[in-house]
Amino acid sequence: MREQPYEEEMSHDPLYDGLKPTVYGEDCPRVEVPDLQDGQPHWLVRAKTIRLLWWAFSAILALTVAAQVFVDVHDYFTVDGWFAFYAIVGFVSCLGMVIFAKVLGLFLKRPDTYYDDL
């Protein structure tokens, strides 16, 4: 509906002059081949490190559950005293939320230019 571009239309407005959009990151350095640094992948993203991280993570997960053998968990609603209750709730409810968001997204997601044409 606008006849002339926003910039042009507003260029006479003294207030707007102080509000011109700032362009950020124009000189942001970029590498052509991602993932590589000095010819090889960063140590954090090497397959070996990632495998190690998964092992460490699994061990910690197991530890937090095993700790419940030694720590008496106070229960308020019976079920929350069950063994590994919080682990199951954490995993299952997150799984549920991710799937729910995925399904809802099928109905609610629009291209991010959706509101641009108004």
Binding site: L61, V71, A87, F91
Partner: peptide, 20 residues
């Protein structure tokens, strides 16, 4: 028990993130 339960909750939520 608060520490153990909170860590269980959060770390398994983290597991759910990487699984999904």
């Amino acid at each position: 028990d608060h520490l153990v339960t909170q860590l269980q909750l959060l770390l398994f939520a983290g597991l759910a993130f990487f699984v999904t």
